[in-house]
Simulated scan of single mutants.
Amino acid sequence: MPVKPAAPTASFSGPFALGTFSAPEQELFPGLVTPESRVLDLRAALGEPALTARGLFERWEEVLPRLHELAGDASVDGWRPLDGLHVHAPVEPRQVFQSGANYRRHVIDLELAHRSPDDPRTAEEARAEIAAVMDRRAAEDLPYVFIGLPSAITGPYDDVVLPSWAEQPDWELELAAVIARPAYRVSVEEALDHVAGYTIANDLTDRATVFRRDMKAIGTDWLHSKNAPGFTPLGPWIVPAAQLTDPGDLRVTLKLNGETMQDESTRDMIFGVARIVSYASQAARLLPGDLVLTGSPAGNGMHWGRLLRDGDVMDGSITSLGAQRTRCVAEETAS
């Protein structure tokens, strides 16, 4: 069974957040959740029986004032307790843009972990050279962005099935931006105007299949290493952007079986949210509900020499955005 907190609570910044929920024997619905752990079915509240979370972002500027009104009106019919509802991934995006090598210390740690045994450099020399590469990337203003699959997304409390072929499954907790207005070739200065809010993503990676073994010149294989079903636990909430003081100064924390593995500020990002959104939009059209993942900080399994195993429980949290909890289940034992 999926691992869930004993009493789910709505811990986030501001008067409300958005999520996707279901009750027993009921279909999914987009909901407004308040800090008091009350949920309002937005299909009924807005008079739109077919409404989805993505539909909210497709007309975000129009609906946002109404969401504020509803959050402050306890007399509206339809409020129900969060406890007893199943919390799903808060949105189903059409596209997922993932940013790699975006936390300075994380990149250095990974490069050191992947060093060849016959590397003649000392650890200090290798660290200095990798740091110089990070400085050059920042100066040349070139984020690293690739594409993920929506089918990899799962809920914030759902089990994560570790495929039998995954030799080195690893965690990567990340800040994710959710797009509202379509963005195509937008400037850095305009980019955040296209962001509706933020959520939590755990962008799992099988380190053993990141690089192609049959032909090194091909490079990375993100399809294989990152896109198994359930490899991107998402949520629980989407918090409107205006409710965050500064997405560039949030604490990203992941605990494995209660032990802290990642605990870093988004200040360590080489490229901020605006730069990544702008960069991605130069090549692709970002659509309402799409996700832009911003990379993972230091403290992954490769750094600790400890990868994910059957039965592991991951608790991930980001300042102002709440927390998720997922349990790892080996494919052979998954029901």
Rank of each mutant, 00 (worst) to 15 (best):
residue 186 V to M: 06
residue 250 L to I: 13
residue 94 R to T: 13
residue 175 L to Y: 12
residue 329 V to N: 03
residue 219 G to S: 03
residue 326 T to N: 15
residue 293 L to C: 08
residue 237 W to S: 00
residue 100 G to D: 04
residue 45 A to T: 13
residue 176 A to C: 15
residue 251 R to L: 12
residue 23 A to E: 11
residue 281 S to A: 11
residue 152 A to D: 11
residue 265 S to A: 11
residue 242 A to L: 08
residue 49 P to R: 14
residue 141 D to F: 05
residue 126 A to D: 06
residue 270 I to S: 01
residue 61 E to W: 01
residue 277 V to K: 01
residue 44 A to V: 14
residue 56 L to C: 07
residue 115 R to N: 09
residue 303 H to A: 13
residue 242 A to T: 12
residue 305 G to T: 10
residue 156 P to D: 09
residue 271 F to Y: 09
residue 323 A to C: 07
residue 310 D to P: 03
residue 19 G to Q: 02
residue 93 P to S: 05
residue 61 E to L: 06
residue 172 E to G: 03
residue 247 P to Y: 08
residue 244 L to I: 15
residue 97 F to D: 00
residue 158 D to L: 02
residue 181 R to V: 08
residue 35 P to S: 08
residue 13 S to T: 13
residue 186 V to N: 01
residue 307 L to K: 06
residue 294 T to P: 03
residue 166 A to R: 01
residue 138 A to P: 01
residue 272 G to A: 13
residue 324 Q to R: 01
residue 216 K to C: 05
residue 79 W to K: 05
residue 212 R to F: 05
residue 293 L to S: 02
residue 156 P to H: 02
residue 149 L to R: 07
residue 210 V to T: 11
residue 320 S to L: 03
residue 9 T to G: 05
residue 28 L to M: 13
residue 283 A to M: 11
residue 191 A to L: 04
residue 117 P to H: 06
residue 282 Q to Y: 08
residue 56 L to Y: 04
residue 126 A to R: 14
residue 328 C to D: 00
residue 195 V to L: 02
residue 71 A to W: 08
residue 332 E to I: 10
residue 170 D to L: 07
residue 249 D to N: 15
residue 298 A to C: 10
residue 173 L to T: 07
residue 28 L to F: 13
residue 335 S to W: 06
residue 73 D to G: 10
residue 162 L to P: 00
residue 206 D to E: 11
residue 320 S to Q: 06
residue 68 H to P: 00
residue 273 V to G: 02
residue 187 S to T: 15
residue 103 Y to V: 07
residue 147 I to D: 00
residue 266 T to L: 13
residue 325 R to M: 14
residue 91 V to M: 01
residue 147 I to P: 00
residue 157 Y to Q: 02
residue 105 R to T: 11
residue 208 A to Y: 00
residue 306 R to Q: 12
residue 141 D to M: 05
residue 209 T to M: 02
residue 136 R to Y: 09
residue 98 Q to A: 15
residue 211 F to N: 13
residue 298 A to L: 06
residue 286 L to A: 03
residue 48 E to Q: 15
residue 178 V to C: 10
residue 103 Y to P: 09
residue 271 F to T: 03
residue 149 L to W: 07
residue 131 A to N: 10
residue 83 D to G: 14
residue 293 L to A: 05
residue 205 T to I: 12
residue 236 P to G: 09
residue 124 E to Q: 13
residue 104 R to T: 08
residue 60 W to C: 00
residue 116 S to D: 14
residue 22 S to T: 11
residue 279 Y to V: 04
residue 247 P to E: 09
residue 161 V to M: 01
residue 245 T to R: 15
residue 79 W to E: 09
residue 125 E to L: 07
residue 254 L to P: 03
residue 148 G to N: 10
residue 321 L to H: 02
residue 88 H to E: 14
residue 157 Y to C: 04
residue 241 A to C: 09
residue 272 G to M: 05
residue 133 V to R: 14
residue 44 A to D: 13
residue 276 I to D: 06
residue 236 P to M: 05
residue 296 S to H: 04
residue 165 W to G: 12
residue 287 L to S: 12
residue 31 G to N: 02
residue 38 R to Y: 09
residue 67 L to M: 13
residue 98 Q to D: 11
residue 164 S to P: 02
residue 70 L to T: 13
residue 170 D to M: 10
residue 106 H to K: 06
residue 182 P to H: 01
residue 200 I to Y: 00
residue 222 W to R: 04
residue 150 P to T: 10
residue 174 E to R: 04
